[in-house]
Design a protein around this nucleic acid. Sequence first.
DNA 1: GAAATCATATAAATATTATCTATTACTTTA
DNA 2: TAAAGTAATAGATAATATTTATATGATTTC
Lengths: 309, 309
Amino acid sequence: MISIQQMQYILSVNDNRHYQRASEACFVTQPTLSMQIKKAEDELGYLIFDRSTNPLTLTVFGEKLIVIIRDILVEIEKIPKLIKTMNGTYTEHLRVGIIPTISAYLVSDMFDKWKISLPNIQLTIEEMKSDELLIALERKELDLAIMAGPHNQTNLRTIPLFKEEIKAYLPTVLSETILTNELTELHPWLLSKGNCLRTQMIHFCGLGNDFNGGWNYEGGNLELLLRMVDVKGGYTLVPNEYLRVLKLDESKCKRIYSTESKEIPAREIISLFPNRTIKWDSIEKVIRGIQLNYGKDDSDKNLQVLNWQ
Amino acid sequence: MISIQQMQYILSVNDNRHYQRASEACFVTQPTLSMQIKKAEDELGYLIFDRSTNPLTLTVFGEKLIVIIRDILVEIEKIPKLIKTMNGTYTEHLRVGIIPTISAYLVSDMFDKWKISLPNIQLTIEEMKSDELLIALERKELDLAIMAGPHNQTNLRTIPLFKEEIKAYLPTVLSETILTNELTELHPWLLSKGNCLRTQMIHFCGLGNDFNGGWNYEGGNLELLLRMVDVKGGYTLVPNEYLRVLKLDESKCKRIYSTESKEIPAREIISLFPNRTIKWDSIEKVIRGIQLNYGKDDSDKNLQVLNWQ
DNA sequence: GAAATCATATAAATATTATCTATTACTTTA
DNA sequence: TAAAGTAATAGATAATATTTATATGATTTC
């Protein structure tokens, strides 16, 4: 049977797509990798890498093997974790990435609660845009990503956190609610490109894909947009929880109703993390904490979850 | 880092609780095990086995390590499975154990469907009592057990399959339903000890734990009990699906209502299998097949699930 | 309580395996 | 076509695993 070391060598060659660099990453010489991987291939009866391409690629067999090897190595990592836990020297470093329009309220809401439920964990929270989160997860630079759904990527596990109503911020109208066709007559203020809330806005307000807001200021920051609305008129969209922490004048924040249906717009907040992870215990606590804190009375509302992709 | 071979040695000593027998099982000599396990213990920094007892036992660390090692070895087993799958020589042998009062109808109902959804799998179905199923799972003699719930054993994974109403078979009364307090006046006919449906009967009919039915015939077979009811009077309890395959006179099968509540008695059918298993794909198909076939319109009934433990 | 038995540990020799340095073979690029 | 880059191979060496033989230590037996 193929050894653990061989698995690590295979993974290193896969990551580096290069024997020499892979061997340096493993602190051995290049022939060692050549021989060990060749030995593994002989034993398994299939080639793992296709050396005829440059840079080298995985064979069909190799693709499937890598998935299994990754899982095995995550399982094996539980042994040093167990030892450190028994020694009392285990401190986990959990790296969480969150999109700005969520982190704006979520981090301040949850900070103290996480501190209690994760007493011995070093927590790093980073604001990133949705696509950056996915890349960082892939590169194993993050352990957990929190963003807006929906999302379907088979190599990542998804757990929904809560649904959040999206309201309109427009001070001019007096009524407490507003219909979608009323909004189309007003100027929308948008977040800059890359923010998924911008895409949701465009979809929801029916602005079309070719919308490039030349006449419009595009803020990177929701609070700036709110000020623009105050000064210049028009409207912008605000997630309900965000609105709460900003302590805005409630009379300016209106529930939106679709002209066609009885639905009100919302976004779904989801968590993403690798299928197998040694940090599951901590991730679970983070997720449960969020679910408990925000997942209260959504079910009674008739929420229509917006897509941002 | 501890090697795969060392893990297998550790597992073998744990299974055999004896170095010599363990070494034979691994086809090596006893000093090999002694040295390798000592080496692993040195490297991990904790003793795995307590040699001062006879037979030897696991240390606290060892207990935790064994759980991890088992998971690792299940993951590693996916590699030879992948190779066989690619060779086209992989045939899985799925061993399913079912309690008799379920298998009586479930096997004939599901057989053709399983044949379609699991074309390349060798399926062995065995009838066993509930406690025998648990032992067989523990000994890895079974891959999947189907029995009545509820059940909570942390080392096994549980997936509920469906709920099944339990009816009374008594030809004498004319009405279509019967109340629990009417049953207490009649003779119950019971399955022999070890059948969980017997325990459910005793609980449900309020017969008490000290009931030993000296005056009563205890059949190992439900059909025999039904015949006794026909000949001698009294009543027996029949799971609803069983009743269907026996093609009994429907007028003799009565829905039971609790005297106190509006509930009708039922049993929950569950599946049990190891937390980690290489045969998950097949197990899932078996489970989904059963759920699809029986999990239809339970939700409208007010079922009270009976405990058998 | 000494002898026998059983169970694991240790020692030294041997076999196996992994890794290294040095070199070769092959491919791509200039 | 030479130069550079990359992986494979050969042979030597180091590291590791396994074996046989024996020691140690604990129970059981007479």
